[in-house]
Design a protein around this nucleic acid. Sequence first.
DNA 1: GAATATATGAACCGGTCCGTTCAGTTTCAA
DNA 2: TTGAAACTGAACGGACCGGTTCATATATTC
Lengths: 205, 205
Amino acid sequence: MAQTATILRTGRKFDQVLEGAREVFLASGFEGASVDDIARAAGVSKATLYSYFPDKRLLFMEVARVECQHQADACLQMIDTTAPPRDVLKMAATRMLGFMLSEFGQRVFRICVAEADRFPDLGRQFYETGPKIVRERIKQYLQDAAARGEVRIDDYDLAADQFAELCKADLFPRWVFNIDPHFTPAEIDRVIDGAVETFMARYGV
Amino acid sequence: MAQTATILRTGRKFDQVLEGAREVFLASGFEGASVDDIARAAGVSKATLYSYFPDKRLLFMEVARVECQHQADACLQMIDTTAPPRDVLKMAATRMLGFMLSEFGQRVFRICVAEADRFPDLGRQFYETGPKIVRERIKQYLQDAAARGEVRIDDYDLAADQFAELCKADLFPRWVFNIDPHFTPAEIDRVIDGAVETFMARYGV
DNA sequence: GAATATATGAACCGGTCCGTTCAGTTTCAA
DNA sequence: TTGAAACTGAACGGACCGGTTCATATATTC
């Protein structure tokens, strides 16, 4: 009979399995990770693993779900939005790049892109629990700042997207294409300052 | 004895093999493409395929090499750089996005990201035969325009990178995260015009 | 301490895939 | 026409992988 293909959350070693899967999936992607590897990394027998998760795919989706949830939680801590625009933007840029350039952020991005065919919702889920939240925050801040007369913007959506993209100048191609994926603080500051400067040149009062 | 592991280019069906491999690799990536699929797509027996290429990996690398070469050739046709900056930038943006948003450009990008571990040089090769060439062209143009007093720029590298990133605002996240990867000309124009406007607000005289 | 739930590990199955082999066929040039 | 080079198709070995099974062992609960 068709057993309900859901996830069993009770049991002593559920968290071990999830943590091992997280580790191996992040390191090797979906296809590259074998279930035996995951069981070994989790310190658990394969039979135990399969007693919790009906198949590899659902295990992967659960790992992705939890990671996206963590990301969303981390995004909730925000910045002092009463400071001058240049300072707020600089803080926001620093935070965004901090995540984007982290080992973890890069791995997640790679997996989202690589598994886009196999898991069409993965990218969406990742975007909505991360970039989208940040984008909405920046947009909200820009609207408030405009009300205070600190900036003048016609298209808030585009402005927020532009700022996010400006922060990736130079850095993003370098790491995504594996050219020189090692950044000094000076290099990052150069990009952030340049992004703020360009953004304010267009939208500052 | 150790046969030299090089590629045999003579033979009637060499091009067929390469074309079949191109088709299947672009559609399915490296791991997703089976050698049997490629042989079938090429209309060639697997034995023939292996008489030309010592293994799947080298076949993939040769396909990537040829594609990157084509990309480099396509980049050589450039734009009328005597026009006003706004027009030149708009043309350049249209060309860049035309490639980036094309089915082919998107597939290549996905494969570069997905196979970054297996083929560390792939991303570099792709970058140097495409984005880098465009970047150098834009940089050169900006220097010429600055000499003509049309723009005022301190960091040409950063300016070129910023412009390229500005062109991706909104569009890039939407397709890379599979959110709404269908763009109307109006949406593209909005981004391009916004990119030119922001760029010129910062660097225009 | 007995009963029950949970975990083990090793073997196993069906499947896919890469790469090889080989006897037989087609192509092509001399 | 003849002979060598290129090609075919089908099969095969060996490796890996996802998922299952089961007899045994360990932990928990009453």
